[in-house]
Design a protein around this nucleic acid. Structure first.
Lengths: 345, 345
DNA sequence: CTGAAAGCGCTTACAG
DNA sequence: CTGAAAGCGCTTACAG
């Protein structure tokens, strides 16, 4: 393979000049730059990332740490991050923090070995809760880090206002006239630090309070954010003759789709007999005509990358860790409508 | 951060000995090895990937090139590959070859810049069709490469026998007694080299031929492998009074799920009025009780990684490019059954 | 079994 | 604007 030396020979300059010319440094004359770029093109020269990294201290590679890969949300975030990094000339090295419970040694190895190799300039952590020790190991690396969606001490974090999102989804229902609105929420127990499920429940309750309704505990079911979980929760809610909601707010689109399927299975029409709203902007939402609050996961991934690139840039403003709010949009489709007259009172 | 020099100082040996001891080379005495590993642990030393790569010529990093990220199949493959690589101490750098049609410059940049950086020891290419020029650029890199699911000249390829998979799925239906079996296939036009859609159609026709049936073109519809595509295709098939299949074989699980939803929407019962079988082993298959031929995508990713690691290993058998068949299993659930008596003749 | 030294292929002060 | 030279932090023949 072509080395910088061969390019230098062909162009009749030193390797230092080749390096400067290809890096776009201003201190190279136009004619020299042309000779160098021509020589590089002729030889098909691309600088070795490994040698460049060792010499410069910059790898032009970002590590992305994710707890899941094969779910739509995480895959979408990954896609957005990858695209933004690639456009900036950065590579992305993936670290999958999987199955922490059954394989604690994998998690340990990630923090004690993989992340310590200095293969990357910076990290993006998605939906990650880190122990104090893990956080301190990352801080010791002195690499910029951006957290997406998780509360991470001492790093720039992008997160969505879960309470406001849930309030918007629920207020959409109450504004249509719904008064008996069920909640399929996430479990609040296993991840008490994470607060996402609790915030979404709070937003739901706030929206109800705005129209003078006390949240009814009988209209609240917990599920696991999956389609099947939403399906089963909905059977519980709709099957109980004492509950009779006219609408369901599900804390994720997959659960909302499960709710639609369960309602259909019981012979109910959507939205005539039951309105359903979710959160996410899932790709299947269009097919199921699901009204949702879109949190734009691809864009989230891109914003995380851009925040990180800003910290890596030449004019990085040091360690001022911003906390940014992620955008969201209510997307009304046909799964929600005014409640049927017989149910409205 | 700790360097090898500091470990050497603490252990009272040379950096050469530290390197050998930590690499597990046999030529280090037990007592020296212990002093070195103790010193390394005390300092939290992990060798810089960048320096190690430059000196040794091995990066311990594999590049994974994928045309999609945010679909279940590809995300599952990625998961399997990542896990196998991580267990072997390798990192995974992701190259997403997206949207080739609208952004040809991204594809070009991948082959001319990103893959040329020598950041990885080897590549895995998933479902990739490469032009001759792209293939020759990769061959010029002289890095091992494994192709998963695509026909790639001159590299080890793992692929599934699409004809046999489709034949198995269809024969499952005919063995139950179905004689009017519709096919929701993939479009064969855009990727004529790829043959996957054509092979699956061939398997379908072979299975029918085994029971003396000529495939009826009126029972064949093309779709795009998505749930919505399967839904719409099924409406066409079931809505035509002249067709009347008792079973549908869909060339992907997502299309099969779309078929189930379309049939339900028309008031048909699964499997009493219509049997449906798919291909994939999609995570939603269980929820929809879908009979399918599972192609084990996570395992496919793992097998690709293992094939590549074998080529990277010390006893790599040179360039003998095997072509391996991937395993698959018929997974019978409740979406298929004997056809109703009235339809059986 | 261990060390001194060369070298991997770049980048970047420093000097001119 | 350009070059000679040092150095990034390792690995690995080579010599003993």
């Amino acid at each position: 393979m072509a080395t910088i030396q061969r390019v230098a020979d062909l162009a009749g300059v030193s390797t230092a000049t080749v390096s400067r010319a290809l890096a776009g440094k201003a201190t190279v004359s136009a004619s020299t730059r042309k000779r160098v770029t021509d020589a590089a093109r002729e030889l098909g020269y691309v600088a070795s990332a490994t040698a460049s990294s060792l010499a410069s201290g910059r790898t032009r590679n970002v590590g992305m740490v994710m707890p899941f890969l094969s779910s739509w949300y995480y895959a979408s975030v990954l896609k957005g991050t990858h695209r933004a990094l690639a456009d900036a000339g950065y590579d992305l090295t993936l670290y999958h923090l999987e199955d922490t419970v059954r394989h604690p040694e994998r998690r340990q190895r990630l923090f004690e070995e993989f992340l310590q190799r200095k293969r990357v300039d910076a990290f993006i952590a998605v939906s990650l809760e880190l122990t104090d020790e893990e956080l301190s190991r990352i801080h010791d690396l002195k690499k910029p880090m951006v957290g997406l969606g998780g509360p991470l001490a001492g790093v720039t974090t992008l997160s969505i206002d879960d309470r406001a999102v849930a309030e918007l989804a629920t207020a959409h229902l109450t504004s249509l006239g719904h008064r008996r609105v069920a909640l399929i929420g996430g479990a609040e127990e296993p991840n008490p630090d994470f607060h996402m499920a609790a915030h979404r429940r709070q937003g739901y309750e706030d929206a109800l309070a705005e129209v003078g309704i006390d949240a009814d505990a009988a209209l609240r079911v917990e599920a696991d954010f999956t389609l099947q979980g939403g399906y089963e929760a909905t059977l519980q809610i709709l099957g109980d003759p004492r509950r009779r909601p006219t609408a369901i707010f599900a804390a994720s689109d997959e659960m909302a789709i499960g709710a639609i399927l369960a309602a259909r299975g019981l012979g109910l029409r959507i939205p005539e007999d039951l309105s359903v709203v979710g959160i996410d902007g899932h790709e299947l939402g269009q097919f199921f005509e699901l009204t949702t609050v879109d949190q734009h996961p691809v864009q989230q991934g891109r914003l995380a990358a851009e925040a990180l690139l800003a910290e890596l840039g030449p004019d990085a403003a040091g360690a001022e860790h911003a906390d940014l709010d992620l955008p969201y949009d209510l997307r009304v489709r046909r799964s929600t409508a005014v409640p049927a007259a017989r149910a409205r009172d």
